[in-house]
Amino acid sequence: MKTNKKRVIALVSAAVLVAACLIFMIFFNGHFVYISTGLNSNTILKLDGITMTKTEAKILMSDARSQYEELLGEDIWNETIDGESFYSYVNDQIKVKLIRVAMLNKLAKERGVVLSRDEENNVEAAAAEYYNNLSDDDKKQLDVSLEDLEEMYTKFAIANKLYEDIISEYDIEVSYDDARVIDIQYIVSDSKEEVENAYNSIQSGSSFFALAKEINDDGNYEMELKKGEMDQTFEDIAFNLSTGDMSEVFEVNGLYYLIRCTSDNDKTKTEVNKTTILESKQLEQFNEYMNEYESKYYVDFNTGVWAKLSVRSNSIYSSNFESIFNSYLSN
């Protein structure tokens, strides 16, 4: 009996698909307190003289819409996540990001963090590239100037520089074992008898992958596995296998599995994962620090203007802020 592939890898795919696009989005995530005031129609928020504009919000929404639709399709905006419409979820992420960038610029002033001359040159180059890549219609819709873009890239560059300065102070270690990435083949079914028969056939010389392709829906049978992606029982069994070893038949949440380890340590992927885990831990500690800092301040937030914006209906412009930022200003 075959089983739906989506049930097999659901614990992996949902998190990966969201994370792939939200890394840049949640970079400045945190808590905040805000009040609504009579800000002008192009100002989303104001904090101690630092403003974030509607134009900047629309630029971020363009990036987000483009990224999500490319990865998940245009229908993604009809989906929900944790009971909330997906577009509302992304809207909230962008709002939090705008506030965090303003907070980081405020903190940068207090710490005396400024851009170097080379960084200022990179800001100018990034802004020029973004502006030149916009179509005439994009420029008209955004009502944006080169100077506006230089200001936006400056604020994000300062926020990024301060972030790097702060996390450089953290003493965080990630063990090689925690970061270890393994490669496995698997057979899965909701029939215990079917998997047990497969186990016996393999013990008698049958091909694991041939049986997996026959039993598993769509013939998928391979997985790259990191810790924290699957049920603990599944991971405990998988990570205790050596290369070439096969597990016994086991059950997780009503499904029966058989695992064969094809590599108990993919060294290249493990090194990449170690960096990813380190960055995640740094971000977690950074957010704790910023949450405490942000709790002391009010942000004037223009709820009226914000309510009229939505990533779902925002235009996709012919220039991408994030990719250009990463080219010139990301460490």
Results as ranks from 00 to 15, higher is better:
151 E>Q: 09
207 S>C: 03
149 L>S: 01
318 S>I: 00
195 V>Y: 03
243 T>W: 00
117 R>W: 02
298 Y>F: 15
93 Q>G: 06
234 F>W: 10
238 A>M: 04
44 I>D: 05
75 D>E: 12
193 E>H: 03
116 S>K: 00
153 Y>S: 07
202 I>C: 01
83 G>M: 06
81 I>E: 03
212 A>W: 00
319 S>H: 02
134 L>N: 02
80 T>I: 02
110 E>G: 01
6 K>N: 13
321 F>K: 10
330 S>T: 02
219 G>W: 06
206 S>Q: 06
3 T>I: 13
77 W>D: 15
331 N>F: 13
187 I>E: 11
79 E>I: 01
27 F>T: 11
297 Y>N: 09
122 N>G: 09
274 K>D: 13
262 T>Q: 07
36 S>P: 08
57 A>S: 13
134 L>K: 05
238 A>G: 07
125 A>G: 00
211 L>C: 11
152 M>C: 09
8 V>W: 00
74 E>V: 09
107 L>C: 04
256 Y>F: 13
159 A>S: 14
142 L>S: 03
232 Q>P: 07
21 C>N: 14
216 N>D: 15
318 S>E: 15
167 I>C: 04
33 V>K: 10
105 N>E: 13
233 T>L: 13
80 T>W: 02
118 D>Q: 04
111 R>I: 03
256 Y>E: 10
182 I>V: 14
154 T>Q: 05
252 V>D: 06
96 V>G: 11
316 I>T: 14
298 Y>T: 10
320 N>W: 08
328 Y>Q: 09
165 D>I: 10
283 L>T: 04
187 I>W: 04
165 D>Q: 12
14 A>E: 15
175 S>I: 06
264 D>Q: 01
20 A>S: 11
261 C>A: 11
257 Y>D: 05
7 R>W: 04
64 A>D: 07
69 E>T: 15
244 G>V: 09
210 A>S: 14
144 V>N: 00
291 N>L: 08
80 T>L: 06
110 E>I: 13
217 D>G: 12
96 V>R: 08
122 N>A: 13
43 T>W: 04
288 E>S: 14
311 V>G: 02
309 L>D: 08
205 G>N: 07
102 A>P: 01
282 Q>S: 02
161 K>A: 08
57 A>E: 09
